[in-house]
Design a protein around this nucleic acid. Structure first.
Length: 859
RNA sequence: GCCCCGAUGGCGGAAUCGGUAGACGCACCUGACUCAAAAUCAGGCGCCUUAACGGGCGUGCCAGUUCGAGUCUGGCUCGGGGCACCA
């Protein structure tokens, strides 16, 4: 009796695969390709359980497709630029590059111990100069193609870290790292013109058949298309150049309910007034101070400033409305100006109430009365009674009235129906060091001049200091001082670097030719693209995936990718998180979190192992350092081996849902591998390559189980139901254990079963499968064995168990031939003693026979 | 506020087309092996009821469609996620 020893087996097979270059691939137009990609990691220092789950799933797909004969591209790299490296530099005085490459080395070693079928020869980090050089080339191509612009924008400014923050880096109005209150600043920034593609990116969502519906919805909502009316008010008493005020509304049906116009504090008209009216300037400054946190928005009162300017209502030249500057009007949506209809918009209602402006209802409910304490805002599809409408009164839906109003405006020549998008241009300028430098030179005479391609790359200088906050590139003594490429006069480099989302927006394309002297190599990208299966966390459902979709389109427009790559990810799978129980005790009103290792749980009660003190069992949550419930994958691999960790990650929950880490579960996985080992140990098998003999009933039964398992596991893997594949393999092993007690006539069936088992397990527990395969007498590796094929005649049963219901309740079972004719099944059912008993002598009214499924006798 | 998703034993989950609810695993219980424990092996395990055979109930709640509903429809409750002063 032997045991499976993961510590010896795993390094052995990893070395064997590496030596055989098993996972190194080249483009080969004669073979079908398959590109599997998991979202590449940020090199934080150590892999975590989320990585293990993500890469275990990807590896199942990659190894399965490989066994099916595909030329599988399965690469790995590092999303290596970003703030943590700069923070490490500040804290420890090491260069961000040094820190990053050290963490990469550590994580690479950890990943290699997982035995993933990766082509490591394609590895790169986004902070490699070879990578960001090509990214700079792409930037220049995009610039030339009109996909890049430089403009003023209101941005989140972190006054402590002294940088612009992306919206998602602002938590509750504060910088995610510094905790400082974020200010709104107007800065000149570089933008990718993603909003030009808004409509395209939206409509193409329909083609993403193999993406989760949830992600498609999130993308659609983010792009946020709305149809409405844009029209201009004529102004009275406005400064020169502001004779007209453009407004946008999705509710033109409420034009007659207008009682004021309002503009954003950042609107050009507000700016014009600000210039020579200190009161206006003070008001606008105050508005800009207010944070953008949820709390601030919830509690912030509507604030307004009456400019004294009037506008003329488009439907009535006699009717004038006041123009207010209002803190709730956003400059970057629509035209930055609105008309207020307090009766039917809650914000307008609050504003009008505060400043005593008229509230004029346009429609009312068909039954009952609208509340007097708030705006009446029914669904657009709900019929309401219009009492004041320029396109006709009476009962209709808002949607109908809106369409009429747009038609009316277009016919009357005072407005046009337009589409608006919520999606804004992608601001990529960051005032950071550890990112890809934007290849631009600023010249006083020539303006912003692109760095000539032959001068690329613009390298990050090595001699920088992080003693002070802010951007070290800005205070570098000479890095920024260069001659203008156009006129040769003294000029300055752009010191902003690119948002790290840019780095991850095209890495999948770079993997197809990672050493090319151009961003891509068309022969390689045309063969490998698109990514057939992309796998990652749902937290990237919007930004990363949207940016990547934009980039692929832009790379096609600039000749770097085939048109097919417009949608670079054919199929997307978003996996759930790894969660774990947590424990804490209260001390002086504070929660002290405890390592689960220090806690003993008995009968639902938890106590501290050392002190015996009562401990509170917290919720099952995402592993996090602050809650002390992190399990380090490295420890698990050391203790049980990578295959056990992989098997457990795949076994307990459907991949899209969260999986709870439990010690018992991991031990169960480990026990299973030992059990397979033991069952094989005790099995008597026919010699290798024995042809299929005539089999008796018992042997045929085992063969049927084998072939049904092959069919089932194959379908489960295809359908991303790894937990079901695992359950099926458990059942299969149980059947094999039972078959061991049968005699020599099963020798062939047993060999067939074990050969299938090794190959079916290989994508999930690759080292273990190799070991089994070798013990079965093979001198080749299971990784090179083809995926098993089920014999259709064996994969289904000839006789089946048919349930018999009486009045919809199961009362009996019947063993019949699979293809038994309906009437014979019916008479067998009616003759069944249990059925007769429940009929109690009554004649059946109706007998429903669904062949192969069920019989229902109705009385 | 708007949009979306989910709810099945003590627990994770299975039931792919409207057709045997609870596969498989974990936990637990009984037995075998053992001086003993662990490991392993054999068996049990939704709830109520029954000495037993059996019977009744049961997929968050209330209705409906159907011979038949975990699955479809309508209305709720609870939980989770996304967006959010977007005019």
């Amino acid at each position: 009796m032997t045991r499976y020893n993961a510590h010896d087996a795993e390094p052995k097979w990893q070395a064997a695969w590496e030596q055989a270059k098993t996972f190194q691939v080249e483009a080969d137009p004669d073979r079908p390709k398959y590109y599997v990609l998991e979202m590449f990691p940020y090199p934080s220092g150590r892999i975590h359980m989320g990585h293990v789950r993500n890469y275990a799933m990807g590896d199942v797909v990659a190894r399965y497709k490989r066994a099916q004969g595909f030329n599988v591209l399965h690469p790995m790299g590092w999303d290596a630029f970003g703030m943590p490296a700069e923070n490490a530099a500040m804290e420890r005085g090491v260069h961000p590059g040094e820190w990053t490459y050290a963490t990469i080395a550590a994580m690479r070693a950890q990943l290699k111990r997982m035995g993933l079928s990766l082509d490591w020869s394609r590895e790169f980090a986004t902070c490699d100069v070879e990578y960001y050089a090509q990214q700079q080339a792409l930037f220049l191509d995009f610039l030339e193609a009109g996909l890049v612009t430089r403009k003023e924008a209101v941005v989140n400014w972190d006054p402590v870290d002294m940088t612009v923050l992306a919206n998602e880096q602002v938590e509750d109005g504060r910088g995610w790292r510094s905790g400082a209150l974020v200010e709104r600043r107007t800065l000149t920034q570089w933008f990718f013109k993603i909003s030009d593609m808004a409509d395209e990116l939206l409509s193409a969502i329909d083609t993403l058949e193999h993406w989760p519906e949830k992600v498609r919805l999130m993308q659609a909502n983010w792009i946020g298309k709305s149809r409405g009316l844009q029209f201009a008010f004529a102004t009275r008493g406005a400064p020169a150049g502001h004779a007209r005020l453009e407004v946008y509304t999705t509710r033109p049906d409420t034009l007659l309910g207008a009682s004021f116009a309002a503009i954003s504090p950042d609107h050009p008209l507000a700016r014009a007034l600000e210039a020579d009216n200190p009161e206006v300037a003070a008001f606008c400054a105050e508005c800009r101070q207010v944070g953008t946190s949820e709390e601030a928005l919830e509690t912030a009162e509507k604030q307004g400033f009456d400019t004294g300017i009037r506008v003329v209502h488009p439907l009535d030249p006699e009717w004038e409305l006041p123009v207010w500057i209002a803190n709730f009007v956003l400059m970057d949506y629509g035209t930055g100006a609105i008309f207020g209809v307090p009766a039917h918009d809650q914000r307008d209602w609050e504003f009008a109430t505060k400043y005593a402006l008229p509230i004029v209802p346009v429609y009312r409910p068909t039954e009952g009365e609208a509340s007097a304490d708030e705006a009446y805002v029914p669904a657009k599809t709900e019929p309401v009674e219009y009492v004041r409408c320029h396109t006709g009164e009476g009962v209709k839906t808002a949607q109908t009235a809106i369409d009429e109003a747009i038609t009316h405006a277009e016919a009357g020549g005072y407005g046009a129906g337009i589409e608006q998008f919520r999606l804004r241009d992608w601001g990529i300028s960051r005032q950071r060091y550890w990112g890809c430098p934007i290849p631009i030179i600023h010249c006083d005479t020539c303006g912003a001049v692109p760095v000539p391609k032959e001068d690329l790359p613009v390298r990050l200088p090595e001699d920088v200091s992080f003693e002070r906050p802010g951007n070290p590139l800005e205070r570098h003594p000479n890095w920024g001082q260069v001659p203008c490429p156009k006129c040769g006069e003294a000029a300055r480099r752009e010191t902003d670097t690119m948002d790290t989302f840019v780095d991850s927006s095209w890495y999948y394309a770079r993997f197809t030719a990672p050493r090319a002297e151009t961003p891509t190599e068309r022969s390689a990208s045309d063969y490998w693209m698109n990514v057939d299966q992309y796998i990652g966390g749902v937290e990237h459902a919007i930004l990363h995936l949207l940016y990547s979709r934009f980039f692929a389109r832009a790379m096609h427009a600039t000749g770097h990718l085939p048109e097919r790559a417009h949608e670079p990810f054919e199929a997307l799978f978003t996996q759930g998180m790894v969660v774990h129980a947590c424990y804490y005790r209260e001390s002086e009103g504070r929660r002290i979190w405890l390592d689960p290792e220090e806690v003993i749980v008995e009968d639902g009660h938890a106590r501290h192992a050392e002190t015996g003190a009562e401990v509170t069992v917290g919720p099952v949550i995402k592993m996090s350092k602050s809650k002390k419930n992190v399990i380090d994958p490295e420890r698990i691999v050391e203790q049980y081996g990578a295959d056990t960790a992989r098997w457990f990650m795949l076994s307990d929950s459907p991949p899209e849902r969260d999986v709870e880490w439990t010690t018992a579960g991991v031990e169960g996985a480990w026990r299973f591998l030992q059990r397979v080992w033991r069952v094989l140990d005790e099995a008597v098998l026919a010699p290798i390559a024995t042809p299929a003999p005539q089999c008796g009933d018992k042997a045929t039964a085992l063969r049927r189980t084998t072939h049904k398992t092959i069919t089932g596991v194959t379908a489960d893997i295809e359908g991303f139901a790894f937990n079901k594949a695992v359950a099926r393999l458990y059942e299969f092993t149980n059947a094999l254990a039972k078959a061991n007690s049968a005699g020599a006539d099963l020798d062939y069936a047993r060999r067939e079963a074990f050969e299938a088992l090794a190959r079916l397990m290989a994508p999930m527990t690759p080292h273990f499968a190799e070991e089994i395969w070798a013990r079965l007498g093979h001198t080749t590796m299971v990784v090179d064995a083809p995926w098993p094929k089920a014999d259709p005649s064996l994969a289904r049963d000839d006789t089946i168990t048919l349930p018999i219901q009486v009045n919809g309740k199961k009362r009996a079972e019947l063993q019949v031939a699979r293809d038994a004719p309906k009437d014979s099944v019916e008479s067998l059912a009616l003759g069944h003693p249990d059925v007769v008993r429940f009929l109690e002598g009554r004649a059946p009214k109706k007998v429903i026979v669904v062949p192969g499924r069920i019989v229902n006798v109705v009385v």
